[in-house]
Design a protein around this nucleic acid. Structure first.
Length: 151
DNA sequence: GCCAACGTTGGC
DNA sequence: GCCAACGTTGGC
């Protein structure tokens, strides 16, 4: 079982939306490094930190569980979608997604606080200029983050 | 809204 | 294959 961190912009899709839906596909990942992890490594049963980006309170807000491993992201075939990719075809899909199930909220763990935690300095998230939207989390990092949430 | 960092595109 | 131009991400 592995740990991950997934970023989402809450104005588009927040952890509250995920809670309402209970299970959701995680569409719209359009970065090759992130895609490769979704496609090759993210597995059913893995646990995921949900992170809110590009908003007032940036940070980790909760936990989800992977309930379906990678399959083609249907939005890449939909011209009306903001995630449309004209170079992708159903025969040769370019982008993939997984399904996640809501597990629980955590009290907001702010990015600024995570940057102060020595246990997290190796996380891509806290490094300058990072833009990865799907990243691995080590067991030690996972435990350090939950400890910041008071667990 | 600003801007640094980074990824992608395309000419050569 | 190089690299300048451009677009996007994302914190602040």
């Amino acid at each position: 079982m592995s740990y991950w961190l997934f970023k989402t912009e809450p104005d588009t899709f927040s952890i509250d939306t995920l809670k309402q839906q209970k299970v959701s596909c995680w569409e719209g990942v359009r970065n090759y490094q992130a895609r490769n992890m979704l496609r090759d490594e993210v597995s059913v049963g893995d646990e995921v930190l949900i992170y809110h980006s590009s908003c007032k309170h940036v940070g980790v807000v909760g936990i989800a569980t992977v309930v379906r491993a990678c399959y083609p992201d249907h939005t890449q075939f939909e011209p009306q979608s903001g995630y449309f990719d004209p170079k992708a075809t159903p025969e040769i899909p370019r982008w993939f997604m997984v399904d996640v199930a809501y597990q629980r909220h955590l009290p907001l763990i702010k990015l600024a606080e995570m940057k102060q935690n020595p246990a997290l300095v190796e996380m891509p998230l806290v490094k300058k200029g990072n833009r990865l939207s799907v990243m691995p989390v080590t067991t030690a990092q996972w435990q350090a983050i939950l400890a910041m949430a008071g667990e």
